[in-house]
Amino acid sequence: MRSIDGAVLDLKRLDLLATGDSAIHRLDARAKVLTTLVFIVTVVSFNRYEFTALFPFFIYPVVIASLGNLPAGYIVRKISMVVPFAFVVGMLNPLFDRELFFHLGPFAVTGGWISCASIIIRTVLTVGAAFILVAVTGFLSVCQALERLGTPRTFTVQLLFLYRYIFVLTEEGARASRARELRSCGRKGLGLASFGSLIGHLLIRTWLRAERIHMAMLARGFTGEFHSRQVSGFGWGELFYLVGWSTLFVTLRMENAAQWLGRLVMGLLS
């Protein structure tokens, strides 16, 4: 498991990126959420042996990351943290799917290897799209977009509360586990009983905090309703963004642009 402090810092960094100010950042969040969904659905709709046709899709995350002025190294690092998991899952495919597809020099390439590679590329694309969505939109705006797209208020309020207190509670958790480590004389891990009481303490403190927050809400006239202001609107720019990207994705889904390009270049060369 990742270190607690690291995870919190990481979360803060991703969150701070969303405070950037670029044309992409300024777009209404609904356009970005919907475009991301279309992107992911088209990417995963390829059959499992499709590999090369996935590559043209890189244009989307790369362009958005650039226009949104995101630090490329950071995004790549975040994505590469997930790739090993995809690799482990994908590696099962060559074991079960040994059907020969073609020979690449001395190597026999089986369907399993192709689908394994496909899984990894899918992972990079879908995970990248999710990170980039948050980095150019921000969690708050994503939630507002969800609400305006029909998500029940109860749930979006829950998301916002959760997100707000992740920062407070992970820090609290980090303090508790640091205190324990300092007294555990280098022994790793935690027995069940002491884990129970450590987490139990954390839980009780959390509970009391919820009571205090509730008190603060009541003190300011809370009656069960949340009010919010409208921030941005869905204009022509948003429509253009959504329709433009979706058209591109669908086109790339139907035409293997990589195949075409490859044929073209190889034709020119021969």
């Binding site: 309020v157 829950q158 707000r164 992970t170 958790g173 069940l192 919820a210 509730h214």
Partner: peptide, 24 residues
Amino acid sequence: DDRKVPLMGVLGAFIFAAQMINFT
């Protein structure tokens, strides 16, 4: 039960904190 509004949020965050602490 509007008490549940903050409670659910904070307990959700608690799960994050708790998942970061490992046991043997």
